[in-house]
């Protein structure tokens, strides 16, 4: 094959190659964006835990304190 024909073919490959790479990855962009739309985020699951923990750890001592003081007051009154 002479060089001009080869060069033409190489130019052709360059064009077709770049277009197909862009098309393929462009399609992936759309696919990933659609996936993001239909996939529920992990955040609720992650947010539940820290929300649940404070109720166990910080509210309980207060509750206990309130109850003990109420009981004590009740006893004192008696």
């Amino acid at each position: 094959m002479d060089i001009t024909a080869l060069l033409l073919e190489a130019g052709n490959l360059m064009l077709v190659g770049m277009i197909s790479v862009f098309l393929f990855l462009g399609l992936l962009v759309i696919v990933v964006q659609t996936m993001a739309k239909y996939c529920p985020a992990d955040i609720p699951a992650a947010a539940k835990k820290p929300a649940a923990q404070p109720t166990n750890n910080t509210l309980n001592p207060k509750l206990i304190a309130a109850i003990t003081s109420a009981v004590q007051q009740y006893r004192d009154n008696k």
Partner: peptide, 17 residues
């Protein structure tokens, strides 16, 4: 960002030429 990964492949096809 996939578009950036695609654009950088121009190095391959330009070198082929």
């Amino acid at each position: 960002m996939l578009f950036l990964g695609a654009a950088a492949q121009f190095g391959i096809f330009a070198t082929l030429f």
